[in-house]
């Protein structure tokens, strides 16, 4: 067999296979064409591709299904680019939110058209034309009306309630769609470790929170986690060095002020390997009438010391 050829870049791509919400091509009420625009992605702060429907009344998100080594046959043609684009309706509030938060730091009520502006992404002001934008602004901001003018101020409290509702909606959809939300590994080579029935409510909540977090900043994502009463999970790799650090410095200092804390289960499990400065100074203190430090340590620690 002949030697395999290396792949050349596909530079001349000029066609796309798309699955789009029917409203995109609704020719009934169109007065202008829909358009792909670049806007600031609220999660990454970088440019992402979106679509504004006819008359800017609806915002759409653009996602590409992309697997290596794929191409399309479209009718009697080949399209080398094997991606499948999904154009799905999107809530414009996710994109408006970062601008509102930014201006909210000043604590003033402001007209939104002065808030939602971006030199780098001029199309962002068009978000305010979306039917849902102004109508749903109360989900993320306090409103004040002065005459015919409306002013808004970002409200974290409202936003959290709004995002919580988003999470709840998403949980329902995940269950309905039977989507595996457990931590089980799923790939072609590994079988699902956990079946759907093993997934508990928390798994669903965390999964839905993760999905919503694709549309909000990291800070907001963390705040939402707290709002949902979900403790923050950190990967073992990250926690390990941090906890070590804390054990070596923080705790003994506390102990120096109130050494009964040595007795806490937490400390007993992981005692400091070295005497810290605080401990050393404690050791110099007259200890008559005091229990020796070692008596506060658990037997396990003693065994370790031997």
């Amino acid at each position: 067999m002949a030697a395999k050829k290396t792949r050349t870049p596909n530079v001349q791509n000029d066609s796309w296979v798309v699955i789009a919400a029917e409203s995109v091509i609704d020719t009934q009420k169109q007065d202008s064409d829909p358009a792909f625009v670049r806007l600031r992605n609220p999660s990454t702060d970088a440019a992402s591709l979106y679509m504004l429907g006819s008359g800017d009344v609806q915002l759409y998100e653009v996602k590409a299904f992309e697997e290596d080594f794929h191409s399309w046959f479209v009718g009697q043609t080949v399209q080398r680019d094997g991606r499948l684009l999904f154009v799905t309706p999107m809530d414009p509030l996710y994109l408006i939110l970062p601008y509102l938060i930014k201006s909210g730091k000043e604590g003033k009520f402001q007209p939104v058209d002065q808030v939602v502006t971006d030199e780098e992404f001029p199309a962002c002001s068009r978000l305010l034309s979306c039917t849902r934008s102004l109508a749903s602004m109360h989900h993320i901001a306090e409103e004040k009306e002065v005459g015919s003018l409306k002013f808004h101020r970002y409200s974290q409290e409202k936003t959290m309630d709004w995002l919580k509702k988003k999470v709840e909606r998403t949980v329902i959809a995940l269950k309905k769609r039977n989507i595996s939300v457990g931590e089980g590994v799923k790939s072609t080579t590994y079988v699902k470790v956990k079946s759907e029935s093993d997934s508990n409510e928390e798994d669903y909540l965390r999964y839905a929170h993760g999905l919503i977090s694709e549309y909000i900043s990291e800070d907001l994502s963390k705040a939402l986690l707290t709002h949902l009463h979900l403790p923050e999970l950190t990967s073992p790799k990250e926690t390990e060095p941090r906890s070590k650090k804390r054990k070596l410095s923080d705790n003994p200092v506390e102990a120096g002020e109130d050494y009964t804390k040595f007795n806490s289960a937490d400390f007993a499990r992981k005692p400091p390997k070295k005497m810290t400065a605080a401990q050393k100074s404690l050791a110099k203190v007259d200890k008559t009438g005091m229990k020796p430090l070692s008596s506060f340590f658990s037997p396990k620690v003693k065994a370790e010391k031997k």
């Binding site: 792949r7 296979v17 995109v24 091509i25 020719t27 169109q30 064409d33 829909p34 358009a35 792909f36 625009v37 670049r38 440019a47 679509m51 006819s54 290596d68 080594f69 794929h70 191409s71 399309w72 046959f73 479209v74 009718g75 080398r80 094997g82 499948l84 780098e120 992404f121 001029p122 199309a123």
Partner: peptide, 26 residues
């Protein structure tokens, strides 16, 4: 970032319906 890509949809009614195949090769 300010450039847009307009989608001409007015002719969609007359557009041919075609079979599409996603092939497992490039």
């Amino acid at each position: 970032n300010s450039s847009v890509t307009r989608v001409h949809v007015s002719s969609v009614g007359q557009t041919p319906r075609v079979p599409v195949h996603l092939m497992p090769c490039e």
